[in-house]
Simulated assay, not measured.
Amino acid sequence: MVAVLVHTQADIVVVQGFDYDLTGAALAAFAKLLDAQGLRYPHQFALRPNTGMPTGQDMDGDGRLGGPRDAQGYGAFSGQGGMAVLSRYPVARDAVRDFSGLLWADLPGATLPRTDAGPFPDAKAQAAQRLSSTAHWVVPIDVPQVGRVTLLTYHATPPVFDGPEDRNGQRNADETRFWQVYLDGAFGPAPSDRFVLLGDANLDPAAGDGHKHVMRQLLDDPRLTDTAPTSAGAAATGDTTDTADWDDPYPGNLRADYVLPSADWTVTDSGVVWPAHPDPMADAVVRASRHHLVWVDLAW
């Protein structure tokens, strides 16, 4: 991961799958490691995610308590696989909005899992279930000569590893649909300009599992710009816009990761850090993650 970030030299980056700790020690140590490689992020931000957060209930309906799927978001311990923001510019912490505590049932139009017997796994557990499997954050950053830039960021659950009730599939869809509901003003004032929606949606608009129409609707939203970034690595193995590399034959490569600037930005370039061999970065990218870094260059 360090090699990929140093190669990319982003001004602002959201790191997915980064374990959270209360004091931020791990994130500070990671920033120090990057600093030693010449990449300085003086501003780091993370909040407690829902991953591994105990519920005391049987959230997956397997008849047992205390497993990683019984947490608010999948995790063997609280904070496992959270999110973090690294930035060259100051985070306006007093203006951050954290929607990670929003109950799934409180999302307008929520599609909650059911079986013939009723709510899955039961009404009590469903009433306690948060929408965010990891987090939904609105993070304003003050960028010189531009002003306040607002990140809308999240990490959705994979729409698999469930049963016919489609718990994860429906949750994944609503985690992505949240952003259109938010931009519509359902949760108070939302930014109308200079924002960027980015994260791991774990949802391809055309292939793989999940409610693909939800991603298509987001990509078609006129408030956003889909730059449809490509890479040589994706082109060598499948769709040029794929961002994640799973084992073939299924699900194979998918477009799962997105950076969608608001429509008022001027997009000067975009891409996915997924080079093909014999590029010297190819092996480092594969070691870093099956998800590849998506980037967009913006001008105001």
Rank of each mutant, 00 (worst) to 15 (best):
Phe120Leu: 08
Gly75Asp: 02
Pro108Thr: 06
Leu103Glu: 01
Pro121Tyr: 09
Val91Cys: 09
Asp94His: 12
Pro90Ser: 05
Ala117Leu: 14
Val96Arg: 08
Tyr89Asp: 04
Pro108His: 08
Asp94Gln: 14
Gly79Ser: 06
Ser100Val: 04
Arg88Ser: 02
Asp106Pro: 01
Gly73Glu: 01
Gln80Ser: 12
Gly82Asn: 04
Gln72Gly: 01
Ala84Cys: 07
Val85Gly: 04
Tyr89Ser: 03
Thr115Cys: 13
Ser100Tyr: 04
Arg114Tyr: 14
Leu102Ala: 11
Ala95Ile: 00
Leu107Tyr: 02
Pro119Cys: 02
Asp106Phe: 05
Ala105Tyr: 00
Phe99Lys: 07
Val96Ile: 14
Asp116Gly: 14
Met83Trp: 00
Thr111Val: 15
Gly82Glu: 03
Met83Val: 03
Asp94Asn: 12
Arg97Asn: 11
Ala105Asp: 06
Ser100Gly: 12
Thr115Lys: 13
Arg97Gln: 15
Ala76Thr: 11
Arg88His: 06
Arg69Ala: 10
Val96Ser: 08
Leu102Ile: 11
Ala92Cys: 11
Gly75Tyr: 03
Gly67Gln: 03
Asp70Gln: 06
Arg97Gly: 08
Thr111Ala: 15
Arg97Tyr: 06
Ala95Tyr: 02
Gly79Pro: 03
Arg93Gln: 13
Asp70Lys: 05
Ala71Ser: 13
Leu103Met: 13
Asp98Val: 10
Ala84Gln: 07
Gly101His: 12
Ala110His: 07
Gly67Asp: 11
Asp116Trp: 12
Ala92Lys: 07
Ala76Lys: 13
Arg93Ala: 14
Gly67Glu: 03
Pro68Gly: 03
Met83His: 00
Pro121Lys: 07
Ser87Trp: 07
Val91Leu: 06
Arg93Ser: 11
Asp98Trp: 10
Pro113Cys: 13
Asp98Phe: 10
Thr111Leu: 13
Phe120Cys: 09
Asp116Tyr: 05
Gly67His: 01
Gly81Val: 00
Arg88Thr: 04
Phe120Thr: 05
Val96Ala: 08
Phe77Thr: 06
Ala71Val: 01
Ala92Asp: 15
Pro121Ile: 05
Gly75Met: 05
Pro119Glu: 07
Ala105Lys: 14
Gly101Gln: 11
Gln80Lys: 08
Ala84Lys: 04
Tyr89Arg: 02
Thr115Pro: 14
Ser78Met: 09
Asp116Val: 12
Asp98Tyr: 09
Asp106Ile: 02
Gly118Tyr: 12
Leu103Ala: 11
Ala110Ile: 11
Asp106His: 13
Gly82His: 02
Ala105Leu: 08
Arg69Pro: 00
Trp104Met: 04
Arg97Ile: 10
Pro119Asp: 14
Pro68Tyr: 03
Ala84Leu: 09
Pro90Phe: 03
Arg88Ile: 05
Phe77Val: 03
Ala84Val: 11
Ala105Pro: 00
Gly82Thr: 06
Tyr89Leu: 04
Asp98Cys: 12
Arg97Pro: 07
Arg88Cys: 05
Asp70Val: 06
Phe120Ala: 10
Arg114Leu: 07
Ser100Thr: 15
Phe99Cys: 08
Gln72Ser: 05
Ala105Gln: 13
Gly81Met: 01
Phe120Lys: 11
Leu86Phe: 12
Asp98Gly: 10
Met83Pro: 00
Val91Ile: 15
Gly75Val: 02
Leu112Lys: 07
Thr111Asp: 15
Val96Trp: 07
Gly75Ser: 04
Phe99Gly: 09
Tyr89Gln: 04
Ala95Cys: 09
Phe77Glu: 07
Val91Ser: 09
